[in-house]
Amino acid sequence: MASGVKPRVKAPKKAAAGETVTIKTLISHKMESGQRKDGDGNVIPRSIIHRFTCDFNGQNVIDVNMEAAISTNPYFQFEAMIPEAGDMVFTWYDDDGDVYSTTKSVAIG
């Protein structure tokens, strides 16, 4: 599923050095679990995002391995520590090999 996947991230634009900030992420994805059947009784094959990572200036914040039990449009909320100004890179890995990525810059102030 390469079409219609849109990552959305809510992160503060500014933070004090060493401050802990709340990050919210959402990506539109159907997350087909591989359990459902179509009208003819055939199992719809699994198609999910299986991994999500968040890095700040190359250092890892969180790395999530997902299974089929994660809901449609996977949502994550977590805390990140901001030691200095920099870029926060969010990456999602799809079962079909696609990688979706978005970046947010955080300034100190």
């Binding site: 802990t20 969180i62 999530v64 805390e79």
Partner: peptide
């Protein structure tokens, strides 16, 4: 883990050095 699901695995959260605290929220299927 969700033991009553057809596949029990839900998610594994690995926290890196810059994790503010070791907590996370998400939405799951049961």
């Amino acid at each position: 883990l969700a033991g009553g699901n057809p596949t029990p695995g839900v998610a594994t959260f690995n926290f890196g050095p810059l994790a503010g605290d070791q907590s996370a929220s998400t939405r799951i299927r049961l």
